[in-house]
Amino acid sequence: MNRRQWIGSAVAAGVLIAGAGAAYEFQPDSDRAILAAIGPVMLEGSLPPDAMQAFLDGFDIAVAGLTPSVQHDVEQLMTLLRLPPTRLLLAGVIKPWHLASRDEIAAFLTRWRYSGMATLRSAYDALHQLSCAAWYGNDRAWPQTGYPGPPKLR
């Protein structure tokens, strides 16, 4: 099996695991731990540590605005990242998320971003889009960009 097929079957396995149902449903707390690890790398230099709660809340709100079927896709993605075997195989992150280093997480994001598999690129894209929506919609992200916020009418 070459590397690509190997990843492919791992994705399929993960999807099956997630699809198997009740045992692996959405787990908000551990998902927050994953996002608390990924967010500061995705938004490095922009997201200050004391804005973590706002970022996580923003992420939840962004997911809640998606259709049930896309929310389900996001839950599957979080399940793949949460379960140690798929975290290891697919994301290549060896340590549990809260212990993973910045470089390890950046390497994982980069691998998915440039992956030969469109599914992994789309998973990166989903994490990127949701993270940016969660943070750059917040007034606290704006000063660093120079965006003054909406004009005052009268």
């Binding site: 790398v41 230099g45 922009s46 990127h128 940016c132 929506a133 750059y136 919609g137 660093q144 965006y147």
Partner: peptide, 21 residues
């Protein structure tokens, strides 16, 4: 606008933060 721009930019981390600066 900030959300539309940041979600559309093809980069993450410091590269994206620099672009947004």
């Amino acid at each position: 606008h900030p959300v539309l721009t940041s979600t559309t930019i093809t980069a993450f981390g410091l590269d994206e933060t620099r672009a947004m600066a």
